[in-house]
Design a protein around this nucleic acid. Sequence first.
DNA 1: AAGCCGTGGTG
DNA 2: TCACCAAGGCT
Length: 291
Amino acid sequence: MIDNPYTTAVLAWYDVNARDLPWRHPDATPWSILVSEVMLQQTPVVRVLPAWREWMKRWPAPADLAAEPSGEAVRMWHRLGYPRRALNLHACATAIVERHGGEVPDDHSELLALPGVGAYTAAAVASFAFGQRHAVLDTNVRRVLARAHTGVQYPPKTQSKSETRLAESLLPSDAETAVRWGVAVMELGALVCTARSPACADCPIADKCAWRLAGKPAHDGPPRRAQTYAGTDRQVRGKLMAVLRAASGPVPKSELDAVWDDQVQRERALDALVSDGLVDPLDSGEYALPG
DNA sequence: AAGCCGTGGTG
DNA sequence: TCACCAAGGCT
C-alpha cells in the first residue's frame, strides 16, 4: 500500500536500521513508553537509557511512583535536565491513579490533559503504546519533511499549522502502517537526516528529496538563535538542584549559597525553584527536595 | 508568540 | 573553541 511517496522506502529502511531501544520492545508498557517520551523531551537517547531503566525497575507502574514523594522523582532524574519533567511525571502518575484507575489512558485528549504532555507526547503515546493513527511531529520529523517535501534545510523555529497539515496529509490511512511510518521517519531524522551533517548517501528517499534535488540550498532568513547558558538563571538553578539531589536529606542554606557568588541572582533562582515546586523550604531554614 | 526551562556531546 | 543541538511544553 503506497500512502505517500516516501512510505515504502522509509519503512524498508527502518526494518533494517532501527535501533534496538527498550521502549520499542513488545513488552514495553504504556507507562514505560510515557516515561520514555517525557525523558526524551530535549534529552538525547544515550543519556535517557540508564535513567529509564532505573525508573522502570523502581516504579514499574504509575501507582508505584504516585506512592512516593515527588522529591524522589526529582532525585532519580539525575542530570537529564529540565527537572520539572520529573515533577510532571510524578503528577502524571498521581493523575493516572486518581482519574484512570492506575492505567495510562489510551484516549488522545485524556493524554493531552496530563501534565507535561503536549501535542507531540500525546500523539507518540497514543501511537506507539496503543497503535492509534496520529501524526507524530517532533524535531526529527519536522526536519525530514522540511527537506524532503518542502525543500528547505530547516523547519521554522516554531511549529506552524502548515507543518501539522503536511504531517497529517502524509499519514498512512491504515493505523498499523501509520504507527510504523511515524517511528520510522523519526528514526530517519535521528540517524540519517541529521541537523548538522545529513548522510544523504545513506538516505532511502534521497532520490525524492526536494532539498537535495535543489542543490541543498543553505537556510535563509534570520540566524537560528543560539541558546546562551553560561551565567543564566538556568545554570544557577542547575547548580542548586545538583546540591539537593546529592544530599541524602535537608541542606543548610549555606551549602546552597556556596554554589554561586551573585546573591541577587542566586536568591532569584532559589525562589523560582521553590515556586516551581522543585525545592521545599523547611521551617528549620533548611532546604530539601519536595516531600 | 517569543522566551524560559538543564545538561552534555560534538563538528 | 564554542555555538549548536537533543523524541518539547508552558506561559
